[in-house]
């Protein structure tokens, strides 16, 4: 039976994040945490495969206790099992440390034929997790998947259409395979009330650094992260351009066209 893992992340809705003009630091207070948008497409692709071929979908995330909410969203959408990796020792992890923890925990859950993750996260946006998870799972790798065309359970392969910079490619990869999907064909479904309610009651599997056997403390969290962020600062933004505002939109447009006369 097809065994699918979807790696997800809870992120602050960065569109609502403001910057403190005094300190230049993020104001996270009151900013809702959401399931990373690209992860929703990844989950949708996984659930559709399950619906077509049978099997199970497991969702896994690393994060604080609140990240449980993101997992419940996944359960409501149709995931069968949800796993939360939460421990203060995991904090400040970059993609190398995060991919290590996720892959180490996933080994306790069985063998996965296909692994999905979002193309990038809304907050970190490095887009590196897919490649590094693929490496950790020793999996083949298909990015930019516009459409999954075929699954061959005997040959243990997956064929997908990838949209690249200058054309479209059909590629067949062997299992285990890690995939990232494009949004267009995998719009997330909206769970109904019954599914929401069931997801509230569902059990969530939890692991900490102590309950994942053999986890190397030097490879997790801050010590396990080769990239560091020594400082941040507000971006330098130029002054606003000339704002045009006449008594009516008609006049504003007329003024604009007058100003553009030598460019047009």
């Amino acid at each position: 039976m097809l065994n699918i893992l979807v790696c997800v992340k809870q992120v602050p809705d960065v569109n609502l994040v403001k910057i403190d003009p005094e300190t230049g630091s993020l104001i996270r207070k009151g900013v809702p945490a959401i399931l990373n948008p690209y992860d929703e497409n990844a989950l949708e692709a996984a659930i559709r495969l399950k619906e077509h071929y049978g099997g199970t979908v497991t969702c896994i995330t690393m994060g604080p206790d609140q990240a449980e909410e993101a997992l419940r969203e996944c359960l409501a959408a149709g995931a069968d099992r949800a796993v939360l990796l939460s421990d203060r020792a995991f904090a400040n992890a970059d993609t190398l440390a995060t991919s290590y923890v996720i892959a180490s925990a996933a080994r306790l859950l069985g063998y996965f034929d296909l692994i999905f993750c979002g193309k990038e996260s809304l907050d970190g946006a490095t887009g590196q997790m897919a490649s590094q998870l693929a490496e950790r799972f020793d999996a083949s790798q298909l990015s930019c998947v516009a459409e999954i065309l075929e699954l061959d359970e005997t040959a243990r392969s997956i064929t997908a259409k990838r949209v690249l910079e200058n054309g479209t490619e059909r590629t067949r990869a062997s299992w285990p395979c890690l995939l990232t999907v494009e949004k267009t064909n995998y719009r997330p479904r909206i769970p109904n009330l019954k599914q929401w309610k069931a997801s509230r009651k569902a059990e969530i599997l939890r692991y900490t650094s102590r309950t994942i056997p053999g986890l190397d403390p030097e490879k997790i969290g801050d010590p396990g992260s080769p990239t560091k962020v020594p400082r941040t600062y507000p971006p330098q933004v130029g002054e606003r351009g000339r704002m045009l505002c006449e008594e009516s939109p008609e006049k504003t447009v007329k003024t604009l066209l007058g100003l553009l006369a030598d460019v047009l």
């Binding site: 970059d94 993609t95 190398l96 991919s99 946006a125 490095t126 887009g127 590196q128 490649s131 590094q132 693929a134 490496e135 950790r136 790798q141 990015s143 930019c144 690249l164 910079e165 992260s225 080769p226 990239t227």
Partner: peptide, 23 residues
Amino acid sequence: GSIQGRDFAPRFACRLPTGCTSD
């Protein structure tokens, strides 16, 4: 940071291992 580059650079960084930044 083409599709190719973004596919393999973080992966060899992971295999070495070392730190990888993007963008």
